[in-house]
Design a protein around this nucleic acid. Structure first.
Lengths: 352, 352
DNA sequence: TTCTGGCACTCGACCGAGTGGAGCGCTGAC
DNA sequence: GTCAGCGCTCCACTCGGTCGAGTGCCAGAA
């Protein structure tokens, strides 16, 4: 890549860019004559052919068959998005359309749904949102309910609006009043702190003061630790998969099946998104770069979103590799920013 | 229908049946010669042609074009499944495969997921399960948690294992201890009764003894009524939609899109299933019978499932109209029965 | 050395004609 | 009512020919 990039002179890069733009627009292989005319350079088709031959040698373009025009290879797309693409800012209408979709009073889950819908509608591809990790949201309240012999329902109220249930299976049985006292203890000590902090505190306390506490407080801390313990098996919200049926470059039924199956399973989607969470900018996967066969002809554009400066999740879209990156990238970017700020407005105890 | 059926003599019915079976098997229009040979009747192709002409007049079959064989019309399929089809019992392996899929200790939600997966895997079509109405499940416990000014979280524990949350928005504000007492009151009076009964009781009590109760008990009943109130917006679990991509009679991308979209929205699927909940046997929708355009070339096979004699939900499959009804019907039937009995074993307080 | 015009060649898309086969309807005989 | 046979229709497939787009290469100009 580095190699290819440094080897390319300005003219070759202009031609490659024009070629890819043209192919993205029309979906047709583009020939030397067209390219010579549309590139803006004053060179003949024959010269263009020579340059194209070089580009082909470098693996950036190829022809589907003799005497068809050229189309970009994945490597070509890669070079294109990395160093040739001029990202357009999203049009004001697009920003408005996205912005108006966010209801700051909605619950997190609703926000995720709205966002992935929005992404898919605006880009006409499949949109997806990785649920935010709850690291820094405040624990409002914790309660325990005895369900049966050794089975306890832990209820976490987070941020004053999200409710999470967890069923804990325990060795020992607790009475409801015991549980109540534990809850009181935990609430008194931990309410208002972030889940992250709560976890840390519980662990610390368990180590440091183990011996000083009576059995019940110990059990309470233990319970709290279990309840806050592993976060939900993190999930991802997907929308608009069906848009993908419209692209004829994805028309292979078997591939399409695998693709939609992946959306159902969510596992692999999750894997892809998780790879992006570290970056702090828009990231792009082209074709098989993610290591998945069924991803041929598909690309992913993702962007992390953050609340209060910390990255808490990723969102993005999946579409055909031949997509309008210059349009999609800023949309994903803006959406991530807007989602971040929508999540940032904690309507903790807002009336109604 | 009545008309067509009574007008058909045994021979015509045999031929129609053979024709449809053959078409279902091969997907090819079937001609008079083939039909004469495979029907088992000793009649010539010419005679078969005459009969076929009659069947065509009755609207039971038609040819896609001159001098192609005949294929069944929706009306033909209808007659076929209503009175010509000999339902095979599912093979022992199939029963075993289905049966082994049920884990009697699983939660309702898991059971639904398993079941629709099972249906789709065994039939290689899309499986769906309408969640059971919670009419007759017992309320184990009800608790209230104050979230904020006038916002209360109601927690219903049902059947000793299912947990449901509802956020109630109230005019008046309640303190946590008030709520606690209300919950105690409600639990004392209502625990162990079916949700259905609970509702009835709450309503009765509100009318009859309104004046005798102090404000708090009244509020408690009110709360209880709200909490038990409307059941969840009933939902449906779908699985294996992607199987449908494999059938070339559904290969029209636009149709396919609408179909998958419908699976996502679930609304229309719900409508179809709800139409079936009244019947107590396997029901079949063919093509547009359900009134939906995008259903062309699709059929639905459903069966209600019941717990303790009462129908609580429906399950079924969606596939191409050209499906093997004799195989699918018994599968759906058996699955419904097995699901019913799996739901019937209440593992209310089972250890672990 | 680099660019350019020209030329021969390749390949796929398209068209039209021809062919074989499946299947139908009709008719007249039994 | 049943049946065999005939003529007809229509489709699917193949084949050959043409056209246009596009390439690769070469020789000459700058």
């Amino acid at each position: 890549m580095e190699n290819a990039f440094t080897n390319l002179d300005a003219r070759a890069r202009t031609l490659l860019r024009t070629l890819i733009e043209s192919y993205i627009r029309d979906g047709q292989p583009v020939g030397s004559r067209t390219l010579a005319r549309t590139s803006g350079l004053s060179v003949s088709a024959a010269t263009v052919r020579n340059v194209m031959a070089d580009l082909e040698d470098m693996g950036l373009i190829h022809s589907p068959h003799t005497s068809a025009g050229r189309i970009p290879t994945p490597a070509g797309y890669r070079l294109f998005v990395d160093s040739l693409l001029e990202v357009r800012n999203p049009s004001p209408e697009e920003i408005r359309a996205i912005q108006s979709g966010f209801d700051p009073n909605a619950s997190t889950q609703d926000l995720m749904d709205t966002t992935s819908n929005l992404l898919s509608r605006v880009t006409r591809m499949a949109g997806m949102v990785r649920l935010p990790r709850h690291r820094n949201v405040a624990l409002s309240q914790i309660e325990f309910l005895r369900l049966g012999e050794g089975r306890i329902l832990a209820i976490l109220v987070i941020d004053g609006k999200e409710v999470q249930n967890r069923v804990l299976e325990l060795e020992r049985d607790f009475g409801q009043d015991e549980l109540q006292r534990m809850a009181n203890y935990l609430n008194a000590h931990l309410a208002g702190k972030s889940l992250h902090a709560v976890r840390a505190e519980l662990l610390r306390e368990m180590r440091e003061v183990r011996d000083d506490l009576d059995a019940m407080m110990l059990a309470a801390i233990d319970l709290g630790e279990q309840a806050v313990g592993d976060e939900d098996p993190d999930d991802v919200v997907v929308a608009g998969q069906t848009h993908l049926l419209g692209y004829e470059e994805l028309a292979d039924m078997e591939r399409l099946r695998q693709l939609l199956e992946a959306f159902n399973e969510k596992q692999e989607i999750l894997g892809i998104l998780d790879q992006c969470i570290r970056s702090d900018r828009v990231q792009i996967f082209i074709g098989r770069e993610s290591g998945l066969d069924w991803f041929e002809n598909c690309s992913v554009v993702t962007a992390p979103y953050s609340v209060d400066g910390e990255v808490v999740g990723v969102l993005g879209v999946i579409g055909p590799t031949r997509m309008s990156y210059e349009r999609v990238i800023p949309i994903v970017d803006v959406t991530a920013r807007l989602l971040g700020s929508a999540l940032g407005d904690h309507p903790a105890n807002d009336p109604k």
